[in-house]
Simulated assay, not measured.
Amino acid sequence: MSAGQANSTRTIAVVIPFFQRAPGILFRALQSVFAQDLPPKTMIKVYIIDDSSPVPAEAELSGLAPVPNVTVQVDRQPNSGPGGARNRGLSLAEGDGADFVAFLDSDDIWLPTHLRDALQALDLGHDFYCCDNSREGAFDLFSQDVPLLADKGRALVDRATLLDPKGPVLGFAAHALDDEFVTGYLSHTSTVVVRASRIRGLRFDPDLRSASEDRMFWLTAVLSGAPVAISWRCNVICGKGVNIFFAAHDWNAPATLERIGCQLLFAEKLLRMTSMTPSRSAFARDRARTKRREYSFLFLRTLLRGRRPPMASFWKLLQHDPLLPLRMPPLFLTVLCDRRPQARQF
């Protein structure tokens, strides 16, 4: 932090997309924001983007005790998905001149030191920060489910600077983790805090409404040259509200087909990025092959069962692969004839 920064008030914009069917979920998330142990001269402005939620955001604000350094703004919009809601929050934050942007899903909560820890790492010259998290019923620690992050980042220490042994917290120079962010999912949304100037003008891809829009955002920011800090402190607890991704794994649910369609579209978009190296392109091609097979199987399975499949992703995929309808029947048969259990784990 420079001397000028130390003498001026800094603002963290907290962007919360909101669409929930049960009351009390957003209230808990906001309580965790209000409970943040902030450094001096730090303000929080919360942007709640009510994405036409069945439970109105305003109803969740009553009963919250005011905090001097926290303000809340609610903005209601037609439903556009979490990425579209975050984009609205980013526009508001940019217009208000925020110094940092923190993302929080409405069913997640922060531990009180989350933002303080993030600012400490960002003030050491980093632009992108993320930390460990837990999700009841899925994983105790996200890092232990990701081989690259397991064992406190042992696989990464040779290219990192130790920022704090407690955690630990590791810092990485610009482009040191480009390959890892392209080929892996390293940061859950509610753990991410970024320097606002680094992501000015960057937005979540509305085409990837059902999956991978956050991953595309993170890797685009990192590929632009953002130095990254990763903390192994578990400062985020993920909840169980409405979740487009985790709710889309039933083969009979249209949302599952849309999820896989967006994952295929993500791979197709990766292949067309100018920053793709041979190894990154190989990853994207393999990802596209896998998701194309899964998508084709579920799409034709839906038709054969007399139901109309959702078409939002289909039309977007045709722009990248006009021959997709011709590829689908043989891919369907490939999955149908493959009796290995792992062949149908999607």
Rank of each mutant, 00 (worst) to 15 (best):
A173P: 00
K152H: 03
L104K: 02
H126T: 10
V222S: 04
Y47K: 03
V46T: 02
A176G: 06
D132K: 02
D37I: 01
R293G: 11
P325F: 02
S212D: 08
D151L: 11
S197C: 04
Q31F: 00
P168D: 01
V70I: 03
S212K: 11
G95W: 09
V67D: 03
P165F: 07
W218E: 13
L264D: 15
P322A: 13
L303G: 14
T220E: 14
F297C: 08
F332C: 13
Q5E: 15
G171T: 06
Q144N: 12
S275A: 10
A229L: 03
R203Y: 05
F128L: 14
I244G: 00
R327S: 14
W110M: 02
V74R: 06
P309D: 04
R233K: 11
P68L: 13
A118C: 09
D250P: 07
G89K: 05
P278L: 14
G95L: 09
R86L: 01
S275I: 07
V33L: 00
V157K: 14
L271A: 06
P112K: 07
H175R: 13
D250Y: 01
L149C: 00
H126N: 13
G171C: 06
A312V: 11
P168M: 01
I16T: 10
A267F: 07
S190G: 10
A253F: 00
R116S: 15
L219T: 00
Q144R: 08
F314A: 05
G171R: 12
P329V: 09
T274L: 11
A118N: 11
A138C: 09
D205P: 12
R272D: 00
I16P: 09
Q120Y: 10
D75I: 14
P68V: 02
P40L: 11
D108K: 03
P165R: 15
R344G: 14
N79D: 12
F18P: 08
G89M: 03
L264N: 13
S8Q: 11
R195C: 05
P325G: 05
T161P: 07
H249F: 15
P66E: 05
L170P: 12
V157Y: 01
M216P: 06
F19L: 15
L323T: 14
R154H: 14
Q120E: 08
T183R: 12
P330T: 01
L163V: 06
L149R: 01
D108W: 06
L331R: 10
D117C: 13
A118Q: 08
D207Y: 01
Q144P: 00
P254S: 11
G95M: 08
L317I: 14
K291S: 14
R88G: 06
F19R: 15
K41D: 12
P39V: 12
L124F: 11
F128Y: 13
V157T: 11
